[in-house]
Nucleic acid binder design. Structure first.
Lengths: 113, 113
DNA sequence: TCTGTTATCAACCAATTGGTTGATCAACTG
DNA sequence: CAGTTGATCAACCAATTGGTTGATAACAGA
């Protein structure tokens, strides 16, 4: 888990850019799972999945606990929320901008008529 | 702009993983701008910014129009919405999962006492 | 202690990425 | 037409990424 919110966004968005990692997240949203369980559906090696999981953990999107030799992964909803929050700020800003432009155009039309 | 929603997510999330591109989006949320205008605040070459803009355009996050020799960029709120939508589905799923677990634990506590 | 299971580490490889410089294209302006 | 401005193309480079194989660690159970 990194510190700066800037690097947090870097690594979290990068983590979501891979379809394997998005599938892992989709699976983990339905409950915790181990590396072996997560790797099972994929046509790649367990080591590759382990690397993907390290990327997700590094980005703060998932956390891991210990249960004997197993290390289940858990999805962190707060980390996901931080991403939607960043996106929504800018989406709402541009939508506001659009509405403002519409108002200007309407005003111009009224002046014309 | 790509077709498959899977590749759409790949490229859009990858686009957001770069701090320069996020800054471009933040700027564009306040209104359209040209490559030169967008490049001005950055310590990198105009060509590098042009590449970043191509990445954003390819991902569908921005569109471009023609005005003589200038080609202004516009942020597309719908593309942003598609991303928050994907994230929120899984965030809500895992939060629901948490609440379900809480209920189970509460039930167990009641049985104990 | 020996065996099987869970998971990671290390080294390597091909492809991609983010940046550079230099040339070029396309459109406006004198 | 000649010159300037906005933007892209092309070739190149260093660093990163996603994957592999093989070895190794850590723990559980007989």
């Amino acid at each position: 888990m990194k510190q700066g919110s800037e690097e947090q966004l870097n690594s979290a968005f990068a983590a979501l850019a891979d379809p394997v990692r998005r599938a892992l997240i989709a699976r983990l949203s339905r409950g915790p799972a181990t590396v072996n369980e997560l790797a099972e559906p994929f046509p790649i090696t367990k080591q590759a999945v382990s690397k993907h999981i390290q990327v997700l953990e590094q980005s703060g999107l998932i956390t891991r606990t210990r249960e004997g030799q197993r290390r289940p992964c858990h999805l962190d909803p707060a980390a996901l929320e931080a991403l939607t929050s960043w996106i929504d700020i800018h989406r709402l800003t541009v939508e506001r901008q659009f509405r403002r432009l519409d108002t200007v155009l309407d005003t111009l039309k009224e002046k014309e008529s």
